[in-house]
Write a protein that binds this DNA or RNA. Structure first.
Lengths: 337, 337
DNA sequence: CTGAAAGCGCTAACAT
DNA sequence: ATGTTAGCGCTTTCAG
C-alpha cells in the first residue's frame, strides 16, 4: 500500500510538503503542487483517513441518528444530508434506531459517538435532558432536524402552525366536526405533540368544541391510519373532516374511508402533513414541508460550524424554521349538507 | 480527553494490559480485567477509534452502497445490515447514489473506499468490469445484495424464478394476454433484466406468443407504474393481467386501473414482486421476498469473512439465494370471460 | 516556500 | 500474566 512517504521519496521532498500540496494548503508553489498531484496520482496514492484523523484530531465524519431509515421522511432527510456531506468530503456514519428505545439509549449513552465524529445530526427525536447532557459532552456541533430544542441548533418547520393551517382549511370549508389522527409513536418526538396542539388551538380559535374522542392514535403509519380512520369513520356521529398529522396516516384514513364506502371528499374530507411522494398519487390535500432541504440545511449548518463549508461566517443561525404551504388537492371539500 | 495512558497510570500498570483487558483478549487475569474495566468506566475512558485503526490496520467499518436510500426496498436492506453490523461493533458508512450515475462513478473510481473500510456491501447494482476491478483492488470482503455477480459473494433471490412464479400464476388463472411493467431504471441493475427474462420464459413455456408491445417501462416507481399501466390498459386489446416487476409499479398499475374505471381483479388482474409494506394494504398479490433478511445475511457474510462474527468458519458461502413465495391476495383472479 | 522532527493514542510483537 | 518498545501514517509546529 503506497503511503505519503513513497510519494515524498519519489519526488525527493518532505512528507510535509506532499501533505500540504495535496490538501491545498497555502505555502506551496504552484509548480510543486502540480508535480505532487501528478506523482500522487501516478503512484495511486490514497491518504489514510485513520492516520490523518489521529494526527489532526478531526474525523471528517458526521453521525446521523435516524429513528427509522425505512420511513420516507427520514430517508429523504438523510439523503439531503448525505448529498451535502459527501460534497464536502465528509463521511456519514449512520445510526438507525429502527424504533427501538434500547438502540436510542445505546447511541447516546454508551460513548458510541465520542471521538468518532466531528458533528451530529439528530432527526425528529425530542431529546431528554440526559441525552442533551451527553451531546453537550461531545463538545461538537449538533443540529436537530424536525424537533424544537431550545438553545440548540435546529432545522424544522413550525409544526403547530402547520397543523393549524391544515385544520383551518377544513374549518374554512365549513367543517365543524373534525377528527384528528396523530399519536405518540414509540419514541419521543416533537412533531406529534406540536401538531396536536395546533389542531386544538385551531378549533379553539374558531370557537369549536374540543371532543377528545375525536383524537385517535395512528402511530404515524399507514396501517395505524387505517385503524384510526376506521374508528373515527364508523361512528354514527362521524366527523366530516379528518386531519392526520402525517401523510402516511392520511393515506390510511383514505383507505379506511374506501373500505367503509365513504366517498372522498363528498362524505368525508381528509388531509395530512408532508407532501409525501405518494400524496399527489392519492390526490391528497396536504400541508407540504421541504424534506430534502431540511437535511441539506442541517448538514450545511454543522459544516459551517466546523468551518468546513465555503460560506464561513462567525454567526450561526441557531434555529432555522422553514415555511410550509397548503397544497389543495382533491381529498378535501365542503362537508356534506 | 482521557486516554488509555490515564487509565494505565491510575492503575499503575502498562497500557498494553489495559488494552488487552478492555478488548477481552486472553492473557489477563479475571481480577485485573475487572479492575481495569472499573477504572476505565470511572474515568469515562473511551478508546480512540482513529488510533486503534491506525495501529491495528482494521477500521471496524463497513461501507454500504445504496442506489436510493429513499426507496423502501433499499432502506429495508440497509436497516437489516445496520442492525447486524452495530451488534458486532462495526460502524456503517453510508454511500447513497440517489440514482446518480455520477455519484456511482465517484464511489467506485476515486479511491473513496480505500483505507476506509474493512468490507463493502453493494445493493442491487449490476457492477461493470471496471467497478469489479476497483473492488478487487480493495482486497476486502464484498457482498452484493440483489445482484447476480458470478464469482463474487451475493445474497439475493432468484429474480427470474420469481418473475416466472408471478407470470405462471396469471397463466394458471387462465390469462392469455399478460402485460409486463418493468424497465431499466437509471442505473444498471440485475433485477430488471432477470425479471423480464422470467416473464418471457414463462410465456414461452406455456406456448403463449410474445408481444413486445405488452412490455412497458415503469421505471420501478409508483408514478412510472401509473403511466405504464395507463398505456397498457387503455389499449382496445388490453391485457387481462399485468405483472409488474416491483410492488411499487404494481401499485401504480392499480391506480391506473382505477382511473380507467377498471375493476380489479374482475376486469384486470395485477401482481408484483416484493411484498412491499403497502402491498397488503392494497390487497396486492405479490411474490414475496425476504428484505430485512437479505441485509442481515449480507452483513453476517462479510463479518464472517472478517472473522468477526461468532460463527467463524473457513468456508464462505459465496452465493446465498433466498426463497420467494407467492402471496395470493385480492388483486388477481380469473380473466373476464 | 520547504524540511526536520515530534507526536497523535493506540496495538502488537517480543520480553520477562 | 504483565511490561517494554516500536511503530501505524499522517499532521503540525518550528526552523531555515
Amino acid at each position: 500500500m503506497t503511503g505519503i512517504k513513497d510519494v515524498a521519496n519519489e519526488l525527493k521532498m518532505s512528507t510535509a510538503t506532499v501533505s500540504r500540496a495535496l490538501r491545498g494548503l497555502p505555502g506551496v508553489s504552484a509548480s510543486t503542487r502540480e508535480r505532487v498531484q501528478q506523482t500522487a496520482r501516478a503512484l495511486g496514492y490514497v491518504p489514510s483517513p485513520s492516520a490523518a484523523r489521529l494526527a489532526s484530531g478531526q474525523t471528517n465524519t458526521v453521525a446521523v441518528v435516524v429513528p427509522w431509515v425505512t420511513r420516507w421522511f427520514f430517508a429523504s432527510v438523510l439523503q439531503g444530508a448525505e448529498e451535502v456531506l459527501r460534497e464536502h468530503g465528509y463521511d456519514l456514519l449512520l445510526y438507525n434506531l429502527a424504533g427501538s428505545a434500547d438502540a436510542r439509549h445505546r447511541v447516546f449513552e454508551a460513548g458510541r459517538l465520542t471521538k468518532r465524529v466531528d458533528a451530529v445530526l439528530v432527526l425528529s427525536l425530542q431529546p431528554t435532558e440526559a441525552e442533551l447532557a451527553r451531546l453537550e459532552a461531545l463538545g461538537c456541533p449538533v443540529t436537530f432536524v424536525g424537533a424544537n430544542v431550545p438553545d440548540w441548533a435546529t432545522v424544522r418547520i413550525d409544526d403547530e402552525q402547520a397543523a393549524r393551517t391544515a385544520t383551518d382549511h377544513l374549518i374554512e370549508l365549513g367543517h365543524r366536526r373534525i377528527g384528528y389522527v396523530g399519536g405518540p409513536g414509540v419514541l419521543d418526538f416533537t412533531a406529534p405533540n406540536a401538531r396536536e396542539a395546533g389542531y386544538r388551538s385551531s378549533l379553539a380559535r374558531a370557537g369549536l368544541p374540543h371532543d377528545a374522542s375525536l383524537e385517535v392514535d395512528g402511530a404515524f403509519t399507514v396501517t395505524g391510519g387505517i385503524e384510526a380512520g376506521t374508528r373515527l369513520l364508523e361512528r354514527p356521529d362521524r366527523p366530516t373532516g379528518v386531519f392526520a398529522a402525517s401523510d402516511e396516516m392520511a393515506i390510511g384514513v383514505l383507505q379506511a374511508a374506501r373500505q367503509l364506502e365513504l366517498r372522498v371528499p363528498e362524505d368525508v374530507s381528509v388531509l395530512g402533513i408532508d407532501d409525501h411522494e405518494l400524496a399527489s398519487f392519492f390526490d391528497l390535500t396536504t400541508v407540504a414541508q421541504p424534506v430534502l432541504e431540511q437535511g441539506r440545511l442541517a448538514a450545511r449548518q454543522v459544516l459551517d460550524a466546523l468551518g468546513a463549508s465555503g460560506t464561513e461566517q462567525w454567526w450561526q443561525p441557531a434555529q432555522v424554521i422553514l415555511p410550509t404551504r397548503l397544497l389543495q388537492r382533491g381529498s378535501t371539500g365542503p362537508p356534506p349538507s
